[in-house]
Simulated scan of single mutants.
Amino acid sequence: MLKKLYVGNLPFDATADELRELFSAHGRVMSATICTDRETGASRGFAFVEMVEGAEEAIQALNQARLGNRSLTVNEAKPREDRPSGAGRDRYARTN
């Protein structure tokens, strides 16, 4: 069964390949995606790793582990909460 893990407090220069390598020591990794800012493309300091097996082992081994000069936060990803569409957009709407 596929499990999605949240990886927080990433160094801003971390790569998806580094994450795949780090997590593959604990099981089979399907994907590793570093979240980036839409406008700048810069890392936002967190990622998601999807694992077919070994997710629990990875959480136990890598939560609070050091990567670069930072201590990682690793746990099972929570489902994304629905946000109201268009929230805050009315402020910028033109009135003609």
Rank of each mutant, 00 (worst) to 15 (best):
L2M: 12
K3M: 07
K4M: 09
L5P: 01
Y6Q: 01
V7T: 01
G8Y: 01
N9R: 08
L10P: 00
F12H: 08
D13V: 03
A16M: 04
A16E: 01
D17N: 15
E18V: 09
L19A: 02
L19K: 00
L19F: 08
L19W: 05
R20F: 14
H26A: 05
G27I: 08
R28Q: 15
M30Q: 15
M30F: 12
M30E: 15
S31D: 08
S31A: 09
I34H: 07
C35H: 13
C35N: 10
C35P: 11
T36W: 15
T36I: 15
D37G: 04
R38K: 09
E39K: 01
T40S: 04
S43A: 05
F46A: 00
A47N: 01
V49P: 03
E50H: 09
E50Y: 10
A55V: 05
E56S: 12
E57R: 14
N63Y: 03
Q64L: 07
A65P: 02
R66P: 14
G68V: 08
G68S: 00
N69L: 09
R70Y: 08
S71L: 13
S71Q: 15
S71N: 14
L72E: 07
V74W: 04
V74A: 03
A77P: 06
K78P: 10
P79N: 09
R80V: 12
E81M: 09
R83S: 13
P84Q: 10
P84A: 06
A87I: 13
G88R: 09
R89E: 13
Y92S: 10
R94N: 12
N96D: 14
